[in-house]
Design a protein around this nucleic acid. Structure first.
Lengths: 188, 188
DNA sequence: TATCGTTAATTGATCAACCAATCAAGAACA
DNA sequence: TGTTCTTGATTGGTTGATCAATTAACGATA
């Protein structure tokens, strides 16, 4: 069934399969063959479209970060004094970003960022954007918005880290509550 | 120069080399040959003493956790009302636990815990111990010691995660301050 | 003390498995 | 006909693990 215009469909399928496989196995040690099979094609086709395994990983990472960024953006014009802040935190624990596979992939991409300069760059961009979003939201609420933003950022990552380790799956509600409790306490 | 009693020395050298190499490369994708060479012996000898690469990793992980646990314990009989609490936080950012290689290895062992049941078990033991230490220290200080303990635990992990990503090395003082600022705020 | 068998330490060589990447060639559409 | 899509086959390289063989310390014995 070789129709024209397969490239974006194939690429999307490969990215999805990558996140799923990395998340499922909990490791970056997935083979191109594994990813390709999950995406319903041959390993050679995966190389054809992406060129290398590294580029597949980076695209998957970009996709995760973009998805997260978009889910923040579409919640952003929040209402009320804490609207913006709530939107950011809620986005972090929305189902699409807080599924077991996604979070597991997230952690492994974090590890990738230690060795791959481009992955590190992507992660730092995400950090900067999250930080500036948080600072903006916190300016009318906190005496020291920068410090609170740093704390919330670290807290979110820490909660993510611990969430995947709990054997009985992830509880988004509890995770979210931890952040909100902190915010309630620190903002008067 | 085969002398008798080499086993503990060789094992210790291999564990050190493992942490160093995993930390240096920022990945669990280090070969047994790499580790063995760094420890000054042949790959065959590493297998002779540990049996498998997996067991080398697990021993290295145990060593990191034990070192951390000990550095908490020896600071523990802290003075003053916040003595115990300060001790735990300070231990987390003491040089031996907060060196770039150690933290980098730490993150990779976190990823290992996603796929290796024994590694997961080790990490959960560490979490439980840290939690109970924190709860004990927080009981006379906080209205809800369990919640604050969870928050501090997640915060420490989050700060670790972010620390290795900063290109210009790690700043223990800033990291420590973030935790103490949170505690100052939440404990009246 | 000299000798010798036992045990621990150590490694070079090797194997079987796995894998990322390449390429040539076939198949379907425009 | 030419372009896109697709894959089977192959290759070059890597690696965890094994094993036989060697070297050196130890301990007992004569």
């Amino acid at each position: 069934m070789p129709k024209i215009g397969a490239e974006p469909i194939r690429k999307a399928a490969l990215i999805n399969a990558t996140i799923f496989e990395v998340g499922r196995t909990g490791s970056l040690d997935v083979t191109v063959a594994q990813i390709a099979r999950r995406a319903g094609m041959s390993p050679a086709l995966a190389h054809h479209y992406f060129g290398s395994k590294e580029k597949i990983f980076l695209s998957a990472m970009r996709y995760i970060l973009r998805t997260y960024g978009r889910s923040v953006a579409e919640r952003l014009p929040g209402h009320g004094r804490r609207g913006r802040l709530d939107a950011i935190v809620r986005a972090s624990f929305a189902p699409q970003n807080f599924q077991r596979e996604t979070v597991s992939a997230w952690i492994n991409f974090y590890a990738l960022a230690l060795i791959n300069p481009e992955a590190g760059r992507l992660l730092r961009v995400y950090h900067r954007r999250l930080r500036s979003n948080l600072v903006l939201a916190l300016r009318p609420l906190a005496a020291d918005p920068v410090r609170v933003a740093e704390t919330v950022g670290a807290l979110i990552d820490g909660v993510y880290l611990r969430a995947v380790l709990t054997p009985g799956g992830i509880d988004a509600v509890t995770a979210e509550k931890l952040i909100f409790d902190y915010l309630d306490e620190v903002l008067q």
